[in-house]
Amino acid sequence: MKSRMLMMVLVTAAVVLVSWLLNSGIVSLFVPIAMYLAMAQGWNLLGGYGGYLNLGMASFFGLGAFGAAIAAVNWNQSLPVALLVGAVVAILGGLVMGLLSLRLRGAFFAIFTFVSVFVLEAIANTVGITHGALGITLPTFSSLSYNTLTKIWFDAFIVLGLLATVVVWLVERSRWGSSLVAIKEDEPAAEVLGIRTMRVKLLAFLFAALVGGLAGGLYAYQQQFIYPSTIFTDTVTLQVVLMAVAGGGGSWLGPVIGTPLVMGISALMRLIVGSVVVFGNGIPAQLELIIYGLMLVAVGMFLPNGLVGLVKRWRGRSATPAATSERLEARGA
């Protein structure tokens, strides 16, 4: 246990160190990977372990971004305070959303969280405190060069991502983790066993809010300009869910594998499509999202347990040949 933690600290230190040795152009490619790693881990507890399809990561991300931006610009707060404000706003939002929706199982929860993104976008577009559709321009760090800033943002995101990974790893081995899995498998049974399901789910949802809010705050600073329409958008959710599920939801390793993989494949596909000039006026801007959408469809169809699940199944097969957890066609349930 202690040695694992030590290893995690060492890995983090090593990654941070390497980022300072590399060219900032390369590091900038990894900034989104680090950010989405954090968000995918945030999503993972409730979405992966708990089996509640949370389609509202963009809500937390946006609440964090606007919370931080408002604190920084409207209230002249420093970066750490602004990030904290963003996280608190996201958690409060998560609390309200969770209390309203976590009793609504399955499809209803998914669509509620999905819709929350659009509701928040419309609110942010309307109310004065967010400066409406004009968006917010955050303070710059003019004393630092672009190269340095890139590395700082990468480090911030990767520390957040690895911290979230550690938390998920710890939860996986805790009673909280097994309660979440029990809820995923059979919630009424979990309730009968005395698991306080609402609390377990709500805490997992708030973890998503916390991580999403922090990532959003950092993103606001990194981007400098934020608009409701680019922050509160289902494309953020799409990427988070895709990366977590493709790697393997319900496993701490899933997002660690899934995030770079999905980003890599997407970059590759853009390259390939870009080199085959079938589209008259070049590559459409929508292509990336279409690719992500198709990937999500493919993952849902062929890899619902992600790469981690696939490997687990192979291992299971070789150990006990007939052992699969696949359900028979038990249609008489």
Binding site: L53, G106, A107, F114, V241, L296, V299
Partner: peptide, 15 residues
């Protein structure tokens, strides 16, 4: 599971 159907429909919606 219903969750997987939703996941796929989400992908379809984006496409």
């Amino acid at each position: 599971s219903e969750i997987i159907t939703l996941l796929v429909l989400f992908g379809v919606a984006e496409v």
